[in-house]
Amino acid sequence: METLKLTIAVTGLNAVDSPGPGVGVIRSLRDCKDFDVRIIGLSYEALEPGLYMHDIVDKSYQIPYPSAGSAQLKSRLEYIHEKEKLDAIIPTFDAELANFIKLAPTLKSWGIATFIANMEELTALDKMHLFVFGEKHGFKVPKTKFISSIAQIEDLEDEFDFPMVVKGKYYEAYIAHNKGQIESYFHKLNAKWGLPVVIQEFIKGTEIVITCLADGTQLIGAIPLRKLYITDKGKGWSGVVLEDDALIEMAKKFAKDSKWKGGFELELMRSEDDELYIMEVNPRFPAWIYTAAAAGQNHPAALIKIALGQKVKPFKNYEAGKMFVRYSWDLITDISEFQQITTTGEL
């Protein structure tokens, strides 16, 4: 079979201690024997390690921060497309998805394929709406409440037992054992992420994650994983692929009910009485996505095939017991490269 020559742009090159998924996505694409890929890295910061990994990324461009809006992103992508003739883009950051969703029709008209959900589907799965989604479709989601003032803390004890989980609107979570701690975390999270602050029922159990790919009607693939080592930032630094039919069945139902298009990660908690709770849904591939390819399901490559209009059948198997162990590495570069990306926005 002839290999398909493709130029694919990928974001999330921040392979740091709280890594973006870009490098894992690119490794997966490079592993696919059906493709001969040229990879264009899209970065926000000049020190994203992926920029300097020249065997991973062929050429990089800086793009405007998501907060700058879709118009600025459009103009930058227009420039990049003129130079690189992109075939597809895989966005990998939660915060940039809304802009890419808005631009998807424009990108399509330029001949750039994407495969992402729409705004309604994206919103249904965010922290603010997941509990309602769970209730509607029969998934267990910890009881959740949003508070916007200190006064509301007083009433929480009527609805929740201690400990409670106190979460930021976008990121960060703490476990509070008393009212004083809730108040302290409320101020901290409000200052960083704004209101409301999320209060969630604490579920004791084992953390499991599933990386999934869905085509809008059904699940195309799912790889469940147990994190074996978690950093102080709550990121998995090592994990092992699990074999568990209950997890795959849950992913299938979730893909069907959410009508999700593209990659996503389910963060689950298996309670001591064997119940599965959905703690959070990440609307993109996780940083450990290359483990899925290593276990036999190359989700990024399958996503590109779907985006290009090819028929992709659901994966049937994978290899349990595949592990990842993340490591840090001092990549040596030169100030001239840093200078180039800083001054020209290209490398």
Binding site: T206, L225, L242, D244, A320, G321
Partner: peptide, 11 residues
């Protein structure tokens, strides 16, 4: 045979 047990359901 070296005495290593792996439970793939739980990791």
């Amino acid at each position: 045979s070296s005495g290593f047990i792996f439970n793939p359901s739980t990791g």
